[in-house]
C-alpha cells in the first residue's frame, strides 16, 4: 500500500531525500522549489514511511498529510474583477494547494450579473480538463440559485458550489454545496472562516474519492505516476522552466510543453512495450497550444481496441 505525503523544508540535503524515495520504490509526484525552500509531494510504500519521515526531520523539514495530492483543481469565479476574484477564491485555492492539489484560479468572461451571466463552450471545456472544480458564488439566495442553474449545468467535472446562503433546488447542478462563504472583502483568517476552508477541502476529497472509486472499477492501463516517471527525463520537459511542468490528474497528466512540436515523439514512447499513443489519448489543452493533456485509456478500452486490431 502506498501513501502520499509532502515534505516541506529547505533544499539542504534534499538529494538524500530523493535517493531514499528511489531506494524504497517511491515516486516524486510534484516538486516545487522556491528560492531555498522546497516542497516535495511523494508516494511511498506505507512500511517505509517511518524511515522517510525520520530523514525529513533530520534534514530540517516537516512532513504533512496531503489528501488531495495528484489532482488538479480549478477554482472558478464569475469574473476576474475585484468584486468576485479576491479573498475567498484565493484563500480556497491556497488552502487546496496546502492539501496537495495543484490549483488554478479562473474567471469567466461574461459571468457577471444575475440574468446576463453566461459560460461559453470554451470555458466549460477548459474547466473540464481538471479533476474537479470549485465554483464560487455570492451572497443573495435568488442570485445563487439562478446562476448555479445557468452556469454549473454546463460543467462536466465534479463541482463544489461555494456560496453565501444555502441555496435550494440546485442539488442536481453540482456534487456538493458549501454555504456560509459568499463575497468577502477580507481574508478568511477567523476560526469560522478556517473551518469553512476545511469544509471545502473535505467536500473536494469526498467527491474525488467517488471519482477514484469509479475509476477503480475499470482502472487506467497504467498509473499516471508511471508515465510521469517515463517523461521526467525527456529533455523538453526537463528543460521546461514553467512551474510543475508535469501535473498529475486522477486519470492522466497535463504536460506543459507544446503539443504541435512534441506530441508525436511522446506518442511514440514505450510503456510496458506499447506506444503511449496506443494506451493514451494525447490532446492539446484548450487553454493554449503550449500544453497538452494525456488521458490514460482504461484497461477494458485497451483490451477492446486490441481485439478490434486482432480482427483486422
Amino acid at each position: 500500500m502506498y501513501e502520499v505525503i509532502m515534505y516541506d523544508g529547505g533544499i539542504y540535503r534534499s538529494d538524500e531525500l530523493f535517493e531514499l524515495i528511489e531506494d524504497v520504490g517511491g515516486v516524486v509526484l510534484l516538486k516545487n522549489r522556491s528560492s531555498q525552500m522546497l516542497t516535495v509531494t511523494m508516494s511511498i510504500p506505507s512500511e517505509d514511511r517511518a524511515v522517510v519521515e525520520a530523514l525529513c526531520k533530520d534534514i530540517g523539514g516537516q512532513v504533512k498529510e496531503v489528501p488531495l495530492a495528484g489532482t488538479e483543481i480549478a477554482v472558478v469565479g464569475p469574473t476576474l474583477g475585484r468584486h468576485h476574484m479576491p479573498h475567498p477564491i484565493c484563500d480556497i485555492a491556497e488552502y487546496l494547494r496546502r492539501c496537495g492539489a495543484v490549483t488554478v484560479v479562473m474567471g469567466l468572461a461574461r459571468g457577471r450579473g444575475k440574468n446576463t451571466a453566461q459560460i461559453n463552450l470554451e470555458e466549460s471545456s477548459i474547466i473540464g480538463e481538471y479533476d474537479a472544480c470549485v465554483f464560487m458564488l455570492g451572497n443573495f439566495k435568488s442570485c445563487v440559485e439562478t446562476k448555479a442553474d445557468m452556469l454549473l449545468r454546463k460543467i462536466n467535472v465534479p463541482t463544489v458550489l461555494v456560496c453565501g446562503p444555502a441555496p435550494e433546488g440546485v442539488e442536481e447542478t453540482c456534487d456538493a454545496i458549501v454555504s456560509g462563504v459568499g463575497r468577502k472583502a477580507s481574508r478568511m483568517r477567523e476560526p469560522a472562516d478556517r473551518a469553512k476552508l476545511e469544509e471545502v477541502a473535505d467536500r473536494i476529497e469526498e467527491i474525488l474519492a467517488d471519482k477514484k472509486k469509479s475509476l477503480e472499477e475499470d482502472p487506467p492501463f497504467v498509473h499516471p505516476s508511471e508515465i510521469k516517471a517515463l517523461l521526467e527525463n525527456y529533455e523538453p520537459i526537463d528543460m521546461c522552466l514553467r512551474p510543475a511542468p508535469i501535473v498529475m490528474h486522477l486519470d492522466g497528466l497535463r504536460i506543459k510543453i507544446s503539443y504541435d512540436e512534441y506530441s508525436e515523439e511522446i506518442g511514440n514512447m514505450l510503456v510496458y512495450g506499447r506506444r503511449l499513443a496506443d494506451v493514451c489519448e494525447i490532446t492539446p489543452s484548450k487553454i493554449n497550444d503550449s500544453s497538452m493533456l494525456i488521458r490514460i485509456k482504461s484497461r477494458a478500452q485497451v483490451a477492446y481496441e486490441d481485439s478490434l486490431r486482432a480482427k483486422q
Binding site: N139, F140, K141, S142, G164, P165, G182, R183, K184, A185, S186
Partner: peptide, 19 residues
C-alpha cells in the same frame, strides 16, 4: 428581503468603505 444578503452586504459595505 434576503436576510443573509443584508447582513453580508452590511459587513462588505463597511469593510470596503473603511478600506
Amino acid at each position: 428581503p434576503d436576510a443573509y444578503g443584508n447582513e453580508a452586504y452590511k459587513r462588505l459595505y463597511e469593510e470596503l468603505l473603511f478600506d
